[in-house]
Design a binder for these strands. Structure first.
Length: 147
DNA sequence: TTTCTTACA
DNA sequence: TGTAAGGA
C-alpha cells in the first residue's frame, strides 16, 4: 500500500546530460552520439534540444565500455550487453518491488527487509550484513515488527 | 557556456 | 575517433 522507498530507481527517472555521462563512463561525447546514431543506446527524449540519458543507459554504457576494453567489437559488446540488460532490469524490478526498508540492529549489523518470506505472510526475509566483519547472510523471521 | 550537426584530418 | 566550424 505504501509507496516504494525507491521511487527514484523505480521509474528510472534519474536523468543525466551527455557531458556528465561522458565524465562518469569515460566514453567521449563523440562516441556517445555515434552509439546513439547506430542504435546501441537511446537517449530519453530525442525531440528535446539536448540529449539526456537514463541511469539504466549509463549502466549499459559502462558495461559496453568494459567489454570494449576486453577486446570485443562495438557490435559484439552491444549485443552482449543488450541481453544482460534485460536480466538486469528484471533483477532491479524484483528488488524494488520487494524492498521494504533497511533496519539497524543492536549489534551493529544492518538488515534489508525483502518482505514476506512465505505465502502465509507470517515471516519476512532479511538480508543481514555486518560491515565490521564483511559477513552477510539471509534470515527469515520478524526482526522489527513496528506496532 | 554547453550542446548540436556536419565535415575534414 | 578527435576536433574545428558555425549555429542554437
Amino acid at each position: 500500500m505504501h509507496p516504494s522507498k525507491l521511487e527514484l530507481l523505480k521509474g528510472n527517472k534519474i536523468i543525466i546530460g551527455i557531458s556528465e555521462v561522458s565524465k562518469i563512463t569515460g566514453i567521449s561525447t563523440r562516441q556517445l552520439r555515434y552509439w546513439e546514431k547506430k542504435g546501441y543506446i537511446h537517449s530519453v527524449d530525442r525531440s528535446k534540444r539536448f540529449r539526456e540519458f537514463s541511469l539504466d543507459t549509463v549502466i549499459k554504457i559502462e558495461h559496453m565500455k568494459d567489454l570494449l576494453e576486453e577486446g570485443f567489437t562495438l557490435v559484439a559488446a552491444y549485443e552482449k550487453v543488450d541481453k544482460k540488460m534485460k536480466l538486469f532490469k528484471k533483477m532491479k524490478h524484483l528488488f524494488i518491488n520487494n524492498y521494504e526498508g533497511i533496519i539497524e540492529l543492536e549489534d551493529g549489523k544492518a538488515a534489508i527487509d525483502f518482505g514476506y518470506f512465505n505465502a502465509n505472510e507470517e515471516e519476512h526475509l532479511y538480508f543481514i550484513f555486518d560491515e565490521s566483519t564483511d559477513k552477510s547472510y539471509f534470515q527469515a523471521g520478524n526482526i522489527n515488527n513496528k506496532k
